[in-house]
């Protein structure tokens, strides 16, 4: 069970819309290494963890990933506010726009809708924790390219 706090974990205030940046950052929302995948990964894996420390940390990190998801969604929303047709076309956001308008949709930067194939939940703690190490390693790419 969760309850909502009506605040972002860290404030997001983007004054200048930037469709080109939104096209890349959307991947951190619903891409293979995005926050949606991260939260589902940890919140699904926690059921099979064998000790209280592992259950607790996956439960609580998974919860925090949902707060990250909300911040990234806010970034995409604010980057695409009030864009004109010309701005959408010039930035190459028209392919996204024809399917989703300016709605925030969980997809990878290349347009692939969110896919749970990018995460694992095997019921084996060692396997799952190794997958988590690999997943956290992808943060470097997000920091470099977003």
């Amino acid at each position: 069970m969760w309850s909502y706090i009506k605040s972002l974990e860290f404030p997001v205030k983007i004054k200048c819309p930037d469709a080109r940046a939104a096209k890349i950052i959307i991947s951190q929302y619903g891409g293979p290494d995005g926050e949606l995948g991260a939260s589902l990964r940890y919140l699904s894996q926690r059921f099979a963890m064998p000790c209280p420390e592992a259950v607790g940390i996956l439960n609580d990190v998974g919860t925090e990933e949902l707060a990250h998801l909300e911040m990234v969604g806010s970034i995409v929303y604010q980057l695409t506010r009030n864009l004109s047709e010309e701005q959408i076309k010039a930035a190459g956001l028209d392919a996204y726009f024809v399917d989703h308008g300016l709605g925030v949709y969980p997809q990878a930067a290349a347009g692939v809708p969110f896919n749970a194939m990018a995460i694992a939940s095997k019921g084996d703690p060692i396997t799952d924790l190794h997958e988590n190490l690999a997943a956290e390693g992808t943060v470097l790419y997000a920091q470099t390219y977003c």
């Binding site: 706090i5 605040s7 974990e9 860290f10 420390e53 609580d60 990190v61 925090e64």
Partner: peptide
């Protein structure tokens, strides 16, 4: 305050 308690709770989990 929430950031402090979030991070502290993750540390306390282990």
């Amino acid at each position: 305050a929430f950031f402090k308690l979030t991070e502290a709770s993750l540390f306390l989990d282990t």
